[in-house]
């Protein structure tokens, strides 16, 4: 199986679905570049180069560069989805969703419900999230809890290239609006990814490590840190299970509960701001459904409740890291270092 970057995996999912289904179109700012100018066409391909090459293959009618107006093109994508296309809109940075949130949570998320199940909205919004690229507080947030809060939206947070391709393919084929989160520090990560198209179902957590002592549930990029922590801890004979929920809506609650029932200890790792986050949500879930299985308090590893700092030293201190995860686990098994 060939190794591919996260960037290639996302590109391949888009290209293969556009070839398979002529109703799949992509819209967004600078996803190709050069529109209406005499200069080089397809010069840009999105800020991470993910969509580069799609316009030459599929043409301007299916790869739509838009003006810098999220409220306009997200609204257009919602309408297109409700009327027969399968748009994949590129919101560039999730931090920009403020200006187009009505289109997402009052329109796209509500159509199926308010039209009595007679409307479908097969829309995907791809968006970048997360800290670590020195992009400051307006370009570094992890806002997936906000979308997870809205009934009618599906929220997908892939942790690796293999996951990204299978989950994006599933998202495009899904008949409901899906918000697809790509961590901006993952694009160059490599992994074995099949050339063929494949889908990973929503609401099915993935166990990336298995151990009897502690369950670590981690979201998105944090899964990789949790894996590293679990490998470090194993050297000290502390065995961790690492759960990647893959999607926070729907959420595979049963798998989380089952693993906590096995280990009796839970650490949740979440890059989102600490209040009303996925960490608090999963903690509440476990406290409610598996309280008697717990052998100790639930630990949450998350950033402080501040904007993401711009100063590199502060940003590094802000992001949860492997050491934080290891210490949280050690505090539960009584083997602190």
């Amino acid at each position: 199986m060939p190794k591919k970057t996260f960037r290639q995996a996302v590109h391949e999912a888009l290209a293969q679905e556009m070839r398979r289904d002529p109703t799949v179109v992509i819209v967004g700012e600078d996803i190709s570049g050069g529109l209406g100018s005499p200069g080089e066409q397809d010069a840009w391909g999105g800020p991470q180069g993910v969509t580069k090459g799609l316009m030459p293959e599929f043409g301007r009618s299916r790869v739509l560069d838009t003006p810098i107006s999220e409220s306009a093109f997200i609204g257009a994508a919602v309408g297109a989805a409700a009327t027969g296309l399968r748009p994949v809109a590129d919101l560039m940075f999730v931090d920009f969703m403020g200006v187009c949130f009505d289109q997402i949570f009052n329109q796209a998320a509500k159509f199926r419900y308010m039209f009595g199940g007679r409307a479908v909205t097969p829309l995907v919004i791809r968006t970048m999230y997360g800290a670590g690229l020195r992009a400051a507080s307006q370009h570094s947030q992890s806002l997936y809890p906000v979308f997870t809060h809205i009934p009618g939206l599906k929220v997908v947070i892939p942790s690796s290239p293999y996951e990204a391709k299978g989950l994006l393919t599933e998202a495009i084929r899904d008949d409901d609006p899906v918000v697809f989160f790509e961590h901006k520090t993952l694009y160059d990560v490599e992994e074995d990814v099949p050339d063929e198209a494949y889908t990973i179902p929503f609401g099915e957590a993935n166990l990336t490590r298995e151990g009897d002592d502690v369950s670590i549930v981690a979201i998105g990029r944090m899964v990789n840190l949790a894996n590293e922590a679990a490998d470090n801890l194993q050297r000290d004979n502390i065995q961790c299970t690492v759960v990647d929920p893959r999607t926070t809506s729907p959420m595979d609650e049963d798998t989380i509960i089952e693993t906590v029932e096995d280990t009796g200890r839970l650490v949740v790792v979440d890059e989102a701001s600490p209040r009303c986050s996925i960490a608090t949500d999963i903690s509440a879930l476990v406290a409610e459904r598996a309280f008697t299985a717990l052998k100790g308090p639930i630990r949450m590893v998350r950033p402080p409740h501040t904007p993401v700092p711009f100063a590199p030293e502060l940003e590094d201190a802000y992001i949860p890291n492997v050491h934080d995860i290891c210490e949280a686990v050690r505090s539960l098994v009584g083997k602190s270092q």
């Binding site: 293999y162 299978g166 099949p194 063929e196 198209a197 494949y198 990973i200 993935n206 166990l207 298995e210």
Partner: peptide
């Protein structure tokens, strides 16, 4: 093992 299961699921997820 988990990896054996995952390998087979990866194969089964492929289109077709």
């Amino acid at each position: 093992s988990r990896d054996m299961i995952n390998d087979i699921l990866k194969y089964k997820r492929l289109d077709g």
